[in-house]
């Protein structure tokens, strides 16, 4: 785990670390990677990955409108809105 990799990870996850945090996290991630590398000891050749503990099929919902949206209730918990819109700094496409 090097700084370059950490920079990539912070960019992908839109995080930001203080110099202090970065030093600690870089160190911790090194140990965490060592921990998860312990899996290599397990022989998993030909083992089907288990994506979910439940052995069930996806239930399918009837196509009906069941949610009446009360916009005000949702906008009330938003940090910055106007005219019913959520506001973010100007986006350039």
């Amino acid at each position: 785990m090097d700084r370059q990799t950490l920079d990539r990870l912070t960019r992908l996850s839109q995080l930001q670390l203080s110099a202090e945090e970065e030093r600690l996290v870089l160190d911790d991630l090194g140990h965490i990677v060592a921990l998860i590398d312990e899996m290599r000891a397990i022989d998993t050749d030909g083992v089907e990955p288990l994506t979910h503990p439940l052995d069930m099929d996806q239930p399918l919902r009837r196509d009906a409108v069941t949610e009446a949206v009360d916009r005000a209730r949702f906008l009330a918990v938003a940090p910055l809105t106007r005219d019913g819109l959520y506001l973010v700094p100007k986006v350039v496409e």
Binding site: R61, D63, A64, V65, T66, E67, V69, R71, F74, L75, D83, G84, L85, Y86
Partner: peptide
Amino acid sequence: TRSKIFSGAEAAFGAPPNTRACAVDL
């Protein structure tokens, strides 16, 4: 479809902003 793919909110064009976005859509 009448409703969204993963929620029961109405899938409609042209409604006032954010009046067709339920908790799941948000």
